[in-house]
Design a protein around this nucleic acid. Structure first.
Lengths: 251, 251
DNA sequence: AAGTGGTCTAGACCACAGT
DNA sequence: CTGTGGTCTAGACCACTTA
């Protein structure tokens, strides 16, 4: 009832009798108003705030609109909702933020640089302890290990080691990894699912340092990902970013 | 119309004439079906997928339900939507993931450990280059610098340096920071807004290393945050996590 | 048993962007 | 202009949780 809403909104505002509060009928406006009350201290942390029903009456909109606004706030961790109990302002300053992590090619091209992929090594190899755990294999189960570098305008931007388990993944002729990044081959050829990833810091070992052209031991960001196929882990990747790289997180 | 939906759903399924496809009437089911088609290659990257109207007819549900499902997928970066144009499967393997970053106290207590805050130093100090840039002050504008440690069962878990700009922030008696973490004081007393943060890796300087009880130069994760008040940056915090700490990101 | 959030529906209008 | 997604509404039923 967007049209009629505006009409009745005008009617309400022009009627002499009433409406100490302007109608809020977009979910963004409701979210903003609730946020304002929280930040202004009207609803301190831990407060049980009014029900959707009550808010929809107060704001002069449908309950679904209030629900949408509150869902957004709950997704951000600002409030916590439980059936029958109600909605509480989150007591702790916890946040759920959105992290945008593009594929490396996009990251580099997005900076206006030219992307180049360089394979370093490609060989069957016994798993590292991390790979063993991530892929749930034994120490003697050899895996295909592909090491590579991703260059931005011919400057090393990221170096990557990826283990692929040939027991649960039908691998192509490994020579294709000389030209195509394993991640892109996976994305194109298999319906793999990422089951989350980790962000950590590590001092570079000598081979990675050589690959990124910096001193060994330099602290860099490292992202570890496991790709799964039908809930079975099939690949384990470790991406070492060049020093001073940072992940920006929007609020 | 959840009840009537079930009724008509049964009616449709029992009618002899038709319905090669079961009715999908929850947004989760629709999201799953669309995801399946994308992953199965029925809708390869770049494909323009059917309109909400078409999908609502095919799935036998309201357009609003399709819209909810598609919005979730768009929020995850799986598809891209534009008015008049339609909805495309995202060409690049970009992801938008949710990062949960609790307050340090919650992080430690969530592991079942006891939390303890220890202030290290608290003094007026000229800004570091990073602080200058983050808080938009000059090199001669001295700031309050509070250094502290957050302990988990008396083991250092994180060490923190936070700059507060007294020109734009009315500070309390600094001695309160001997007992209360600055972040918690800020959260309780000021309607500060976080304007995003950065995640990076750094080798520990000697004082931080001492504080965390590890060797200088050890690579650690570092989170930088700026808190703002009415869009004016008022505090700049750098949190150094102990080695081997990792951020887990759900997909 | 009752109250609260979670969701679905059918219809409507709006905003935007191609034609 | 037209078509697409974005949103709002009013009403309804369901799911979960506490009393």
């Amino acid at each position: 009832m967007a049209g009629p809403t505006n009409v009745s909104s005008s009617a309400l505002q022009s009627s002499g009798l009433v409406q100490h509060r302007r109608r809020l009928n977009t979910w963004q406006a409701i979210r903003a108003e609730v946020l304002r009350r929280i930040r202004a201290g009207e609803w301190p942390p831990g407060t049980l705030i009014p029900t959707e029903q009550a808010l929809s009456v107060e704001m002069g909109c449908a309950r679904a609109t209030v629900n949408r606004a509150m869902r957004e706030l709950a997704d951000s961790g600002i409030i916590q909702r439980r059936r029958k109990v109600g909605t509480r302002v989150t007591a702790t300053r916890s946040r759920r933020s959105t992290l945008r992590l593009p594929a490396i090619r996009d990251e580099i091209e997005g900076m206006g640089a030219s992307y180049r992929y360089v394979m370093t090594t490609c060989e069957m190899s016994l798993p590292s302890p991390e790979a063993m755990q991530a892929l749930q294999v034994d120490a003697q189960d050899s895996l295909l290990l592909v090491r590579s570098r991703h260059m931005a305008d011919d400057v090393p931007h990221c170096c990557e080691a990826i283990w692929l388990n040939p027991r649960v993944l039908s691998l192509p002729d490994p020579t294709i990894f000389e030209k195509e990044p394993p991640q892109e081959w996976l994305a194109r050829n298999l319906p793999v699912e990422q089951s989350g990833f980790s962000i950590l810091a590590e001092g570079l070992t000598s081979d990675c340092a050589l690959s990124l052209d910096v001193d060994p031991g330099t602290a860099v960001l490292l992202i570890e990902r496991v790709n799964s196929l039908d809930a079975i882990p099939v690949t384990f990747a470790r991406q070492f970013y060049s020093p001073n790289h940072r992940l920006m997180v929007d609020d």
